[in-house]
Amino acid sequence: MSNMSKTAATVQKVVSTKLSHGSTVFSMIQPTGLFHLGNYFGAVRVWKQLANPSNCHSHLMFGVADLHSITLPQDPLRLNDSIETSIASLIACGLDPEHCNLFVQSRIPQHVQLNWILSCITPMGQLNRMTQFKSKAALRSEDIGSAKLGLFTYPVLQAADILIYKSTHVPVGQDQAQHLELTRDIAQLFNNTVGREYFPLPSTMLAPTQKIVSLKNPSKKMSKSDPDELSKIFFNESSKNIVHKINKAVTDSIEGPLYYSEEQRPGISNLINLIAAVTGQSIQNIEHQISDFTKAQLKDYTSSLIIDELKEPSYRYKQIKDDHALLEKIAIEGSRIASEKAQKTIDEVYSLVGLRR
């Protein structure tokens, strides 16, 4: 199969949340604090839609990627708080521990065990081609010697995260699609090495939402680290703050009907993307509805939709964010279940590579 057709066969938009019997869905999010709209629409809401009773015959594994977070410097106390905040945020956004497994990556040592096995067969050339490494390292190719090893090799840990549960589907944003292709390559390399089709090659499930970008600078994606508070909206924002931030969002000076064009009208297009994310409608349908709106009316409409969408998660977050005992209980139980699944894989992998009979 050619690279093009191979990719087409393993990448799909999330158009249905109904999973085939026995599927294993896996995804994680880094503990960087409260979720903004990009996190919510690009990942967590899709997880919520998948974690429904109709998928009770599938395994749904959603975690907090705290080991990945330390590839960049972290304040230890702040990181610890952010891990708990992430668990609370996942539950507030609709992930029911009764219908899915919520875990913390660092509590499951088997991730790291499999990471070493896979590191021993992964070519460095493939890691060097990862665009996110170059972006996060902020280095020119000639300066690669000063980059940290963890930042360079974390796609192998990411592959281990996914493969330790023999995942069949991985919902991610477009920026992670390259890493999922590497995961499939590593899985196939392992299978070839041991002479059997042990690991399934997981399919990439791309979130249907277009990338949500900064409200103040549409050339950048929405980011928690952006110092401009007006650039981002968190899922627990007050209605007043949401209206204020949307009203301050960048648009343009083009007169006449509103339309979608990321090149010509990135600010307007971002607001349309937000409407599409909330309503699930196509860009074309929304363009037809809002073509005669003024920019002020478009902002009012966008604000009202976001406020309504976030009302329930925001309320739930306030209810549980300080219940440390409950959040710890959920993390412990979810990590225990995940560890049991992961240990079965490690036992089999160790046997296949000759480390255990």
Results as ranks from 00 to 15, higher is better:
residue 9 A to T: 07
residue 14 V to M: 14
residue 193 T to H: 13
residue 253 S to M: 10
residue 177 A to V: 15
residue 158 Q to C: 06
residue 217 N to F: 04
residue 137 A to V: 03
residue 305 L to W: 09
residue 291 S to M: 13
residue 146 S to E: 14
residue 93 C to D: 01
residue 254 I to S: 14
residue 16 S to D: 14
residue 117 I to D: 02
residue 84 E to F: 11
residue 197 E to Q: 14
residue 249 A to L: 00
residue 272 I to H: 04
residue 303 S to I: 03
residue 210 Q to R: 12
residue 105 Q to R: 08
residue 336 R to N: 14
residue 198 Y to N: 06
residue 24 T to E: 09
residue 170 V to D: 07
residue 129 R to A: 12
residue 167 S to Q: 07
residue 316 R to I: 09
residue 275 I to H: 08
residue 85 T to C: 03
residue 307 I to C: 05
residue 206 L to A: 13
residue 150 G to P: 12
residue 78 R to S: 04
residue 34 L to N: 02
residue 45 R to C: 06
residue 209 T to C: 07
residue 249 A to V: 04
residue 6 K to I: 09
residue 182 L to F: 14
residue 257 P to Q: 12
residue 347 D to R: 06
residue 309 E to C: 08
residue 335 S to W: 05
residue 141 S to K: 11
residue 350 Y to N: 15
residue 279 T to G: 05
residue 134 K to R: 14
residue 344 K to C: 08
residue 331 A to N: 05
residue 67 L to T: 01
residue 325 A to H: 10
residue 10 T to P: 00
residue 34 L to K: 12
residue 34 L to F: 04
residue 138 A to Y: 02
residue 25 V to T: 08
residue 176 Q to D: 10
residue 65 A to S: 10
residue 1 M to Q: 10
residue 46 V to P: 01
residue 317 Y to V: 00
residue 285 N to C: 07
residue 271 L to Q: 02
residue 292 D to M: 05
residue 24 T to L: 12
residue 220 K to H: 09
residue 184 R to T: 08
residue 175 D to N: 08
residue 341 K to H: 12
residue 52 N to E: 07
residue 285 N to Q: 14
residue 133 F to K: 06
residue 147 A to S: 15
residue 307 I to F: 01
residue 236 N to C: 12
residue 73 P to S: 10
residue 131 T to Y: 08
residue 213 V to N: 12
residue 109 P to R: 05
residue 208 P to V: 01
residue 52 N to S: 11
residue 246 I to D: 11
residue 58 S to E: 03
residue 254 I to H: 08
residue 118 L to W: 01
residue 219 S to E: 12
residue 203 S to M: 04
residue 279 T to R: 12
residue 21 H to N: 14
residue 233 I to P: 00
residue 148 K to P: 01
residue 275 I to W: 03
residue 314 S to D: 04
residue 191 N to Q: 08
residue 138 A to N: 15
residue 335 S to I: 08
residue 153 T to D: 13
residue 235 F to Q: 05
residue 316 R to N: 09
residue 250 V to G: 02
residue 212 I to R: 02
residue 196 R to P: 00
residue 95 L to M: 11
residue 116 W to P: 07
residue 38 G to Y: 02
residue 332 I to Q: 05
residue 1 M to N: 09
residue 195 G to Q: 05
residue 245 K to C: 10
residue 174 Q to V: 12
residue 142 E to F: 15
residue 55 N to Y: 04
residue 93 C to M: 00
residue 100 C to V: 05
residue 130 M to E: 03
residue 346 I to G: 08
residue 114 L to T: 05
residue 260 Y to G: 08
residue 223 S to A: 07
residue 349 V to T: 11
residue 22 G to A: 02
residue 36 H to Q: 06
residue 45 R to N: 06
residue 205 M to T: 05
residue 14 V to K: 08
residue 333 E to K: 11
residue 35 F to W: 02
residue 332 I to G: 00
residue 238 S to R: 04
residue 336 R to F: 11
residue 57 H to Y: 10
residue 138 A to S: 14
residue 68 H to D: 04
residue 128 N to E: 13
residue 7 T to F: 15
residue 178 Q to G: 06
residue 14 V to A: 15
residue 88 A to G: 05
residue 220 K to W: 00
residue 222 M to Y: 03
residue 345 T to Y: 11
residue 159 A to N: 15
residue 273 N to A: 07
residue 111 H to Q: 13
residue 146 S to F: 02
residue 188 Q to F: 02
residue 13 K to H: 13
residue 44 V to C: 04
residue 91 I to F: 00
residue 75 D to W: 10
residue 340 E to R: 13
residue 138 A to T: 12
